[in-house]
């Protein structure tokens, strides 16, 4: 191992916060950062100078941080398909399964940042993904982008930067301490495996997305 402080020296791995210990983390020599890789449905938050990476097809990621407090995080999600609703006349698309799950994915990330001391009014949002990676599919990427834009608007947040839509998948690396994001467009040949993984995620979402448990304290 190189001496501490030398170029490329591997720093000590910052401890993962409670609840994030299961995520895959590795030392990335190119960026000289400990890097956490997140998969569809996962998110990660940190108060250290490290990196978070993911590969997005039609899924979207929000990179969110409080620059003053020095905390940031990233999620990776897509909306579940809304089945025709059996619920009756009061049903409104604003409370459909897709919107409820998307809001939950965003709130989980934002809540954890706030627990680390982030303030709502200082949050900086950068949005990525939502590509149309397979022509045979309906444009689920566009649906994910529409959702995240409307969420940001309803909540009164501002978008600091975004790279969404298009037809290519993206690999993104987020550095929350600096607020910087590296985006690399991937070649179409890699689309299939990315789309397959997203499809598996989408199917697994079905039940899980439709509501958590209820407990009454009698």
């Amino acid at each position: 191992m190189a001496a501490i402080g030398a170029p490329g020296a591997r720093s000590a791995q910052p401890p993962a916060l409670r609840g994030f210990e299961h995520l895959q983390r590795f030392w990335e020599p190119d960026t000289e950062r400990w890097t956490t890789k997140i998969l569809p449905g996962e998110y990660y938050v940190t108060c250290h100078d490290e990196a978070i990476t993911t590969v997005l097809g039609s899924c979207v990621s929000a990179c969110v941080r409080d620059p003053l407090r020095g905390v940031g995080g990233m999620n990776h999600f897509m909306l579940p398909a809304d089945a025709a609703s059996p619920r009756g006349p009061w049903v409104d698309p604003a409370v459909g399964l897709a919107t409820r799950y998307g809001s939950y994915a965003m709130e989980s990330l934002i809540n954890d940042l706030m627990k680390l001391g982030a303030a709502r009014q200082r949050l900086e949002f950068k949005l990525f993904g939502g590509g149309r990676v397979l022509t045979s599919m309906t444009d689920v990427g566009a649906r994910n982008i529409d959702f995240i834009h409307s969420f940001i608007e309803i909540e009164g947040y501002k978008i600091a930067a975004q790279d969404v839509g298009g037809t290519q998948p993206r690999k993104i690396v987020y550095f929350p301490a600096a607020g910087r994001v590296k985006v690399r467009r991937l070649r179409a040949i890699e689309n299939r495996s990315i789309a397959d993984r997203e499809q598996i995620y989408l199917e697994s979402l079905g039940k899980q997305a439709d509501g958590g448990e209820v407990e009454l304290f009698a």
Binding site: S103, Y104, G211, G212, E213, V214, L216
Partner: peptide, 25 residues
């Protein structure tokens, strides 16, 4: 949840919420 119960909450619903289950509760 135990903290909620001790605080005096009547019940605990975990997000993402299901509208039917919310109304039933």
């Amino acid at each position: 949840k135990l903290e909620g119960k001790a605080a005096g909450a009547t019940g605990w619903l975990v997000k993402p919420f299901n509208p039917d289950r919310l109304l039933a509760t």
